[in-house]
Design a binder for these strands. Structure first.
Lengths: 133, 133
DNA sequence: TTTGATACTAACTTTTTTGTATGTACTTGT
DNA sequence: ACAAGTACATACAAAAAAGTTAGTATCAAA
């Protein structure tokens, strides 16, 4: 009764050794990581940090509409995943900087690719949607 | 009181004409599209269909754990976005096929890139997470 | 002395997403 | 007669995500 049948898709873009399909199974931890980087604030934080180090308050201003709670939460999960590096300077008032790790950069540029594609194609998508109502 | 200040990130990967930042503003419709393709079942449907046309019942089997409601819903939103093409044959019992449109293929391969990266790097990510607890 | 800036946390509520259970329509097989 | 397979829809419930509000600590400036 296990659900780990892995149909081979053979799209050729992943090494044969992995044979994707883990992602098709429910409890695969990659889904969690995927969620962390694709959710609204996670995505924006990663893309924002592609432009370089920012401190907490910078991110608050940049990610318009983010609450302090959501920003903290987002940064913490991405830090725990190893995508974001947090550097706290022990001064008063507090000074905390956030930047992308190497892994963070790698995933962020892939996210950016997706976002760019959507932004560029948005007019076509919207046009299509309006046509079919 | 409008929130459309667009800080230029100059990551160089999007055409200057667009100057990203729309995605940073809350009501940007690209966020909706993004959600449709990055949510659990949307992602899996797109990647599954990269392997070729599938009918409803095939997708049900492939996307293990998906309910009929969630599958219908997912396929409908992706169809409305213009990523998936639905072809119904007027026979009994019903026969409906789903495939990717050209736009669907373009976005699906980008999604696949992301998923592949995560799957390949998952061991490192997990190792990192276990180290920092 | 009150306010403001910094970077948060904690409790709680609202909203959104996801899932479950059931129903529909039509035909073939038993 | 009745279950099975097909591709859905609809009402409802559960779970998860997101947002709100208030509070913490410390110092400096007004």
């Amino acid at each position: 009764m296990e659900n780990n049948s892995q149909t081979k898709l053979s799209t050729g873009s992943i090494s044969k050794a992995i044979e994707r399909g883990m992602v098709f199974s429910d409890k695969c931890p990659s889904r969690e990581i995927f969620k962390h980087v694709t959710n609204k604030w996670g995505l924006l934080a990663l893309v924002a940090l592609l432009g370089g180090t920012l401190r907490y308050s910078d991110l608050r201003r940049k990610l318009q509409g983010v609450s302090e709670k959501m920003l903290s939460q987002t940064l913490q999960t991405l830090e725990q995943d190893g995508f974001i590096i947090r550097t706290a300077y022990p001064v008063i008032p507090p000074h905390v900087e956030y930047s992308l790790s190497e892994m963070g950069k790698e995933i962020a540029i892939r996210m950016e690719t997706l976002v760019d594609w959507i932004e560029i194609n948005l007019p076509n998508i919207m046009k299509y949607k309006s046509k079919i109502q």
